[in-house]
Simulated assay, not measured.
Amino acid sequence: MNKAKEASKIDGRTFLRDAFVAEQEVLRLQLALSSKSITHNGVMGEVNEAHFIEVLRKYLPNRYGVAQGIVVDCNGATSDQIDIIIFDPQYTPTLLDQQSHRFVPAEAVYAVLEAKPSINKQYLDYAANKAASVRRLERTSVPIRHAGGEHPAKALFPIIAGIVATDVEWADGCASKSLIETLGALTGEREINLGIALSDCAFQVKEGSLHLTEKGGSLAAFLFLLLGRLQALGTVPAVDWERYGAALSGNA
C-alpha cells in the first residue's frame, strides 16, 4: 500500500500540507548541519544561500533564473553582491560570467533576496540596503517588434525585495511589534516586501500592512507568496542593448 496515495484520498489538503512540511524539514536540517559543521562564517553563508537557491530553482517555473550575483546597469553602475537574484534568463543574458560570479542586467531582475541566519533589525536593515543598491540602478525599456507591428515599451515594475532565514530573533516571533516597526520604517528603495523564518512563519507587506501566514508550513507559504508576486509582475522589459553598447564605446 502506498501511504502517500492513501493519505491524498483521505484528506488531500492534509496530504499536501504534510508533504510541504517534510520538504521544509529537509531544508531546516541542511541549514542546521551547516551551522554545526562549518567553521568559517563566509563559507557557511555561501552554503546556506545555495540551499535556499536550490529550493527556489526547484519550485519556480523555468522562466525564472535563480543565482547569486551583482546587478549592473547600462551605465556600468553596479549593485552590492546579492545573495539571491531572481531574473529573466530567457531574453536577457548574464554578463562576464566567471565560475559562480555573474553580472545580471538590471532590466532582467524580478526580485532580490538576502539569506541570513535569522531575522532581526540589523539583518533587515542590511537586506534593505542591498535592495536599494539594486533599485537605484537605471533600467531601460524599448518597444518589441513583432510580425504585426510593435508592442510599446513596457513600463518598469517595482523590484521585489525580501529576506530568507532559519529563525526570527524576537521572542514573539514574526508577530513581534519590533518586526512591524522595523519593516514600517523601510520605505522607498529600502522597502522589504516579504520574508520567511523557517522556524516561525512567512510574511509579506501589502498596502502598507504586515500580513503573517500561519505557523507551520512556512516554506510553502513563502513560495506561494513569492509566486503570486512574480506572477503579478508579468515579464521584464526589453533591454535597450544600444545603451549598453554605447557605454562600452564611450558614446554614452
Rank of each mutant, 00 (worst) to 15 (best):
V66N: 11
V66S: 09
V66K: 04
V66L: 14
V66C: 10
A67G: 12
A67E: 13
A67Y: 01
A67N: 12
Q68K: 13
Q68E: 13
Q68T: 14
Q68L: 08
Q68A: 15
G69C: 02
G69E: 08
G69A: 07
I70W: 09
I70F: 07
I70C: 02
I70T: 15
V71S: 09
V71A: 07
V71W: 06
V71D: 05
V72N: 03
V72Q: 08
V72G: 00
V72K: 12
V72F: 09
V72I: 15
D73M: 08
D73S: 10
D73W: 11
D73N: 14
D73I: 07
D73C: 05
D73H: 07
C74G: 08
C74A: 15
N75F: 15
N75G: 13
N75P: 01
N75W: 12
G76L: 07
G76P: 13
G76I: 10
G76Y: 09
G76E: 06
A77V: 02
A77C: 11
A77N: 14
A77H: 10
T78G: 01
T78C: 14
T78D: 01
T78P: 00
T78E: 12
T78I: 15
S79A: 11
S79I: 03
D80N: 05
D80S: 13
D80G: 02
Q81G: 01
Q81S: 04
I82K: 02
I82M: 10
I82Q: 00
D83W: 05
D83C: 05
D83Q: 08
I84H: 04
I84G: 10
I85Y: 05
I85L: 15
I85R: 04
I85K: 04
I85V: 15
I86S: 02
I86M: 07
F87D: 03
F87G: 00
F87Y: 15
F87R: 00
F87Q: 00
F87S: 04
F87P: 01
D88R: 00
D88K: 01
P89T: 01
P89L: 03
Q90T: 14
Q90R: 05
Q90Y: 05
Q90S: 11
Q90N: 03
Q90H: 03
Q90G: 00
Y91W: 08
Y91G: 01
T92V: 14
T92A: 06
T92G: 07
T92M: 04
T92P: 03
T92Q: 12
T92Y: 06
T94N: 12
T94F: 09
T94P: 01
T94G: 00
L95V: 14
L95P: 09
L95A: 04
L96R: 11
L96F: 14
L96Q: 13
L96V: 07
Q98V: 15
Q98F: 15
Q99D: 11
Q99N: 12
Q99K: 12
Q99A: 11
S100R: 12
